[in-house]
Design a protein around this nucleic acid. Sequence first.
DNA 1: GACTGTGAAAAGTTTCACAGCT
DNA 2: AGCTGTGAAACTTTTCACAGTC
Lengths: 234, 234
Amino acid sequence: MATIPRDFNVAPGTSVSALEVPEVVIDRLPQYVRTLTQLLEEGIEVTNSQQLGAQLQVTPAQIRKDLSYFGRFGKQGRGYRVRHLLTELKQILGLDAEWNVAVIGVGRLGNAILNYPGFNPDGFHLVAAFDNNPDNVGKEVGGIAIQPMNALADTVTSRDITIAIVAVPSAHTQSVVDQLVACGVRAILNYTPINAQVPPGVRVRSIDPVLALQSMTYYLADQGHTANGHQGAD
Amino acid sequence: MATIPRDFNVAPGTSVSALEVPEVVIDRLPQYVRTLTQLLEEGIEVTNSQQLGAQLQVTPAQIRKDLSYFGRFGKQGRGYRVRHLLTELKQILGLDAEWNVAVIGVGRLGNAILNYPGFNPDGFHLVAAFDNNPDNVGKEVGGIAIQPMNALADTVTSRDITIAIVAVPSAHTQSVVDQLVACGVRAILNYTPINAQVPPGVRVRSIDPVLALQSMTYYLADQGHTANGHQGAD
DNA sequence: GACTGTGAAAAGTTTCACAGCT
DNA sequence: AGCTGTGAAACTTTTCACAGTC
């Protein structure tokens, strides 16, 4: 059941509903967004696939191909207007909206997440925090009052929360994920080292520094392996 | 001991390129290790590709294929002895060794990392911390005395540090990475949202929660997309 | 009977190379 | 002249399917 039907054309500024964009392409778009943002900050208004590729360590052809899934954003012979491409990509990714996010688990890690200033500038607003420890409930962390877990469903609905960050002890991961899914949360950023099972339609991404380290040691362990300075993201 | 297929460096023309293990396979091995560890904790001594696949949400064929790059670890008709497979995989990944790790940057994030208890049990020992802020130097975080950046080279050598975790402000990322590379560090876990350039032979993996969120919003933004509950790791 | 290990096929992804626009 | 957008080719990764072993 493959087939990549690419029968779409896009009027500039119009919402795209591409049929089947490979997930690997979607995963690269946020990086393009970030690089374009940096270029704009440097005052660069026009770029091209060559320059973008150099920044991102990706081939120019790949950038052009990736963009071609969504429309024609460049001008032949000239390249891309940074501001325009950035706007389009943000719109495609849904980053022209603001997203309300809940943090579940306010231990050491949850605390660090709630105090991390990096989410807000990108439109992700941590608006609620939950913990099942009665001693924590009511306290404020990063300007947010910690609520008990039984308030989850109501708050998710009333505050229009679609994304959750899970930072609970491993043993509670699956149960918390189940509760989130039941409340209608469809995107979960999982900081625990557990592979939570979710129904179709719900997405989970994991942040797992230990796994990242463990895949690098393979290349350190033995000099016999290919030693390419390859980068992995996210 | 399992024979690790090796990549021979052959004179040009006489290409005998022995089979090279795809990086995507290496990236999955740590997850296999984790699942096997869990099975063992539950007292399960024998498993099979079906069960492992269910746990990991991966096809049984993929697990068998991945393992086949390194040897024959199972018994036909019976499956895999968990303890045995775990030992082999850890050895392949270099996880039978202990690794000394330095943390660069002891701001909010670096602090959280130094206090995170998840690295040690897996053999990654945070043994040194560096910061360029004189006010921080000398303080202890997580039992480690913060050193000035100019002590980097000496300490990396004397403490046999091969892995570094970078948690400095974005603007300093490239400069810090350059210093690490110059000291001989060959694996870097990058917590900054910057794509550092490294020479061949050095590996970088990035931890970037914002990128992870941004790739999920694509699927939230519009109901027209494929809605598979697919998991991304690390 | 149950399962692995593995060539071969299928599917997916990247790169090439060039027509065509500016 | 310089660059995009894109089919087609090359390459990579996954899945199939089954011979072989326990």
